[in-house]
């Protein structure tokens, strides 16, 4: 088979965001193809969440353009948002609903039409391992299950781009492993952007990594490339995100 052109799903150019005088994100460029998992790394307060909020239409950028599958997010927010699934830092769950009711609502919200909604909900319940708890109230479920419902909500409409903000925070090791497997599966057919603090997570799941520091992309490369060079991600991360003064005081210890 001839070399296929892999479609670009996310294309971001010169993205900036100011909060009054404070510049939170400056001149971010980003490109993602179908079937790629991009790891978003950075210290706390680097601007990862701000970038993700802009990518999902929760926050308007000060400058720059965002295209999802060739559709401009700012010009045609509805069409573009229909192709995005987003799991924010805190999963947006209605605790008063049952898992099935909640996913049904999430599906309707993402414009899945009535005939196919039940099968979409069933499929996503299966996929995220929620079979046993489908009829339970969300408030009665553990953090790990709530995180899975959050992921289920993000993939129910089969989006081209899935954006996950720290999906494994607060989970036990088994749950982390399950969620990582799920993300890797998702990465084979969708594009996934994943933000995290856990470096091994990036090494095990992601194809590419971008390190953000003080609102800028300071490093961008493929995980395999790093492995070939024999540099660990931790070294790279420390080199690009350590404040020079702090790193000096560390080395003098």
């Amino acid at each position: 088979m001839a070399e296929q052109i892999v479609p670009v799903t996310v294309s971001v150019r010169g993205l900036c965001r100011n909060f009054d005088a404070h510049v939170a994100v400056r001149e971010i460029d980003l490109e993602l193809k179908r079937g790629e998992v991009l790891g978003f790394l950075g210290p706390n307060g680097a601007g990862k969440t701000t970038i993700m909020r802009m990518l999902t239409g929760n926050l308007a950028p000060t400058a720059g353009s965002i295209e999802i599958c060739g559709i401009d997010l700012l010009d045609k927010p509805r069409d573009a948002k229909a192709r995005i699934g987003y799991l924010p830092e805190t999963p947006p769950l209605y605790r008063e609903l049952t898992v099935r009711e909640y996913l049904h609502f999430a599906g309707r919200l993402h414009r899945i039409n009535s005939p196919s909604i039940d099968s979409a909900v069933d499929k996503v319940i299966q996929r995220c391992g929620l079979n046993d708890s489908a009829k339970r109230l969300i408030s009665s479920l553990s953090k790990g299950y709530q995180q899975r419902i959050g992921i289920a909500q993000a993939i129910i409409h089969n989006p081209d781009v899935i954006i996950l903000d720290e999906p494994t925070v607060g989970l036990d090791p088994n749950q982390i492993r399950e969620i990582r497997t799920l993300i890797r599966e998702l990465g084979s057919e969708h594009s996934v952007i994943l933000s995290t603090h856990i470096l091994p997570e990036v090494e095990s799941i992601c194809d590419r990594v971008q390190i953000v520091h003080e609102g800028r992309v300071v490093f961008c490369g493929s995980v395999d490339g790093l492995k070939l060079k024999g540099t660990s991600l931790e070294e790279v991360f420390t080199r690009f995100t350590m404040n020079p003064k702090i790193s000096e005081s560390f080395s003098s210890l």
Binding site: G57, P88, R111
Partner: peptide, 14 residues
């Protein structure tokens, strides 16, 4: 307060 507003805003609705 419950962080559920994000779900509505991220959805393809106005």
């Amino acid at each position: 307060r419950n962080h559920t507003m994000t779900l509505l805003i991220s959805a393809p609705i106005s």
